[in-house]
């Protein structure tokens, strides 16, 4: 179970990317985080496994506080967190098998990693995972020979080879065509259900979020402005997340979160004005 409380991030430039966001992800649920560009979605995910250092707040994974960990303890914590990236971030010049096995780096010695001397069980499992993501027979291809959709599936295979307690997914479909996007989302939700691990996804496409997520969280300007089921995400909520529109009195379940989140809804951008008129 991932439990994030009051997470804050201020960049050295003074940009406040996150202004105290709290979130819980449990069981095998798929939580989709939506919001306009610059809302802090990526920062949030990267603060969880500390690729970005949060400025405040707490991140707990199964009761272990991750902020403040360093060295070996941080590396051991990262082994339990699988991450999938927008640009796949595969090691382009290595084979698919090396990429998948790199998910086990936290468990092998440096010398064995250099020799590519991985555990026999891990290799067996890598083959199984490659079959599962539909890339059997590709283990000796170089990662840069694959198509975008295939690369993202290698990225997923690498993450699940870690046997993670949670999957963090940062814009998995932004670089893919609609067809491959669906395939990737199908795979992710399938894995979450089968392996019983929760998934936290940043996503631009609201329709994909509605279709695949159990719960949707809306971020705007570093604050949580919406949290609810896909059914709760009505036009009012969208307006609030993407255009910063004010919530009409007594409007649906979104009103509750907006009240918690404070005065964010009050800021109405020029863009919003134009769109509404």
């Amino acid at each position: 179970m991932l439990s994030v409380t009051d997470l804050q991030k201020t960049y050295p430039s003074g940009d406040e990317a996150l202004k105290g966001v709290s979130l819980e992800v449990t069981g095998s649920e798929t939580v989709a985080m939506i919001g306009p560009s610059g809302a802090g979605k990526s920062t949030f995910i990267r603060c969880v496994n500390r690729l970005t250092e949060p400025s405040g707040g707490s991140v707990e994974l199964d009761g272990l506080e991750l902020t403040g960990l360093s060295g070996k303890k941080l590396r051991n914590a990262r082994r339990d967190i699988g991450m999938i990236f927008q640009e796949y971030n595969l090691i382009e010049r290595l084979t698919v098998m090396e990429n998948v096995l790199s998910g086990r780096l936290g468990y092998v010695s440096t010398w064995n990693a250099f020799r590519r001397n991985f555990d026999g069980d891990d290799i067996e499992r890598a083959y199984e995972v490659l079959e599962r993501v539909g890339l059997d027979g590709h283990e000796n291809n170089r990662a840069d020979e694959l198509s975008g959709g295939q690369r993202q599936r290698v990225g997923i295979a690498r993450a699940i080879l870690q046997r993670p307690k949670i999957l963090l997914v940062d814009e998995p479909t932004s670089s893919l065509d609609p067809e491959s996007s669906r395939a990737v989302m199908d795979l992710l939700t399938e894995i979450a259900a089968e392996d019983d691990i929760p998934v936290l996804i940043n996503i631009h496409e609201v329709d994909l979020a509605e279709e695949y997520a159990d719960r949707i969280v809306g971020l705007r300007l570093g604050e949580k402005v919406f949290e609810g089921t896909p059914a709760d995400l009505d036009e009012t909520a969208r307006g609030q997340i993407y255009r910063g529109e004010e919530i009409p009195e007594g409007a649906g379940p979104t009103g509750k979160v907006a009240a918690e989140a404070g005065d964010v809804g009050g800021v109405s951008s020029d863009e919003g004005e134009i769109r509404r008129s």
Partner: peptide, 10 residues
């Protein structure tokens, strides 16, 4: 590519 490797706990 470096970040992705780091994120595995390497």
């Amino acid at each position: 590519q470096m970040e992705a490797t780091e994120a595995t706990g390497a």
